[in-house]
Amino acid sequence: MITLTINGHRVEVEAGSTILEAAEKLGIFIPTLCHDPRFTPAGACRMCLVEVERARALMAACSVPVMEGMAVHTDTERVHAARKENLRLLLANHPLDCLTCEKNGDCRLQEYCYRYGIAESDYQGARKEYALDESNPFLIRDLNKCVLCGLCVRVCHEINGAGAIDFTNRGFYTKVAPAFDDALEASSCVFCGMCVDVCPVGALTPKQGLRRGRPWELQKVRTTCPFCGTGCGLELSVKDDRVVGVKGDPASPVSRGQTCVKGRFGLDFLHSPDRLQKPLMRKNGEMVEASWEEALSLIASKMRGLRGREMAGFSSARATNEENYLFQKLFRMLGSNNIDHCARL
């Protein structure tokens, strides 16, 4: 264990912890744009700069490991000046269209500008001018809003492994793009959507739920993905009885926030106009709408007239445990063991 002080408060953390982790333990706020504990630290955004006694330059709290007796200051004038300057620089190259931005209210750049009182930048000059990429059906890329934190690049390389995007060009003209600046759909991108989930600003926006709700209006529901057997944790965003957004649930022990294209972008089947909404019954060869009472009593009357072994039921690997349990219980209580599901498929 290592003991250090932050703003004069003593804290003990494990060796190898970062200053940021030690600060979190003390509940001391340090802003970050490019940090995510799941990835290799980048030290790129420089928002987390802190002052360390006896160190010449400011240090990035996200990546500098703690040392015994270290004395860290997170609230000095020098630290504030550096953070403010960073924000001014980012803002000088960022559209101020928060009114229509999907990220409004959930944007870390916005949050920090608010916190540090940076309303606008006093730097005039060149700005990014990239065309909006709306070419694929899943997400919109607005590189003008990108702060080059590199979280999307790291999730793509370090979690997904697709490595579809990376930094390209140099200096001011650096941007994140697929190889040869191709469209995402022409790259090795598998549209897992994890880049969207980690983007701290409005550079990557899912098309699902576009203009359907502000972050603060959304009710979050944690659940389990209904597709394959992996059982990833998902966090659904709900507004007006609609699922308007999906994210990986970082707390899931299975998926740790990871998703694939199906869980991330395929849940809109819920609101398909083709969903069945009323019971149907075949009358004179035609399928017609019926009431629940009618439908259930017809089924029950058919079942009552048969012996158990004349009935069969296919349960579902899609349904819940409780429903599968009830299904087999029902058939078995009626004397039928002819119960199966597609376990073999």
Binding site: T224, C225, P226, F227, C228, G229, G231, S315, S316, A317, R318, A319, T320, N321, N324, Y325, F327, Q328, I339, D340, H341, C342, A343
Partner: peptide, 12 residues
Amino acid sequence: QNNVQGACDMGA
């Protein structure tokens, strides 16, 4: 499938 394990566990 998402719950093929569960469907088996449940005795379907």
